[in-house]
Structures are given as C-alpha cells and as structure tokens.
C-alpha cells in the first residue's frame, strides 16, 4: 500500500502532524510505502489524482483526505482497505 501526502513547503500544520501520521501508518502496516510530495514539484501528478486542497492524502492513487486526518482516521481507512483487499 502506498500513502502519498501532498503538501506545500512551509506548511506548519503538515510539519507538526506528518511524522505522527507516518509512524501510525507504518506501525499498522509494516510494508507500507509513505511518500511526502511537494505539490509544486509534482504538480502534474497532483492534478492527475485530483488534488485541489492542501494538504491532501492519497492512498494507492486515490485522494482520500483533503485535510490532515487524525492518526485514528488514517489507520481506520488503511484497515478498511486491508480488509477489502484481503
């Protein structure tokens, strides 16, 4: 599973929370791939996925959160996807 966090540089909200989200996600799914993408460097890809609001989180190429979720919300979404894929 691949989680992509789209952010703008200097976003304090992202800096405060992303490490916590990453740790929670990796703790839940050890082989999870976590990517942090500066939207200005990945603009075409962000547009392709439909990212319109920042920060946004995409899971396996689908924008799932258009604001930063809590660790619990993210883990819940990841678990749902694991169950659906199982």
């Amino acid at each position: 599973m691949r989680v992509e966090l789209f952010y703008t540089p200097g976003c304090e909200k992202c800096a405060d929370v992303k490490d916590e989200l990453k740790a929670a996600a990796e703790n839940l799914i050890p082989d999870l791939v976590w990517c942090e993408l500066n939207v200005l460097d990945e603009l075409d890809y962000a547009v392709e996925l439909g990212v319109l609001i920042l920060p946004s989180i995409a899971i396996d190429g689908e924008v799932v959160f258009s604001s930063l979720p809590t660790s619990r919300q993210l883990c819940s979404e990841l678990m749902n996807r694991v169950k659906m894929g199982a």
């Binding site: 703008t8 976003c11 939207v39 603009l43 962000a46 547009v47 439909g50 990212v51 319109l52 920042l54």
Partner: peptide
C-alpha cells in the same frame, strides 16, 4: 505568507485541473 502561498498553490491546482 505561507498561508497566502498555500491558497495560491491551491488556486493553481484548480486552474490546472480546469485546463486538463
């Protein structure tokens, strides 16, 4: 300034989506 920059980046994303 970062807050304004984020708004500008979001507008650019919306414009690029419309262009697409």
């Amino acid at each position: 300034c970062t807050d304004v920059r984020r708004v500008a980046v979001e507008k650019k994303l919306q414009l690029e989506a419309k262009i697409k």
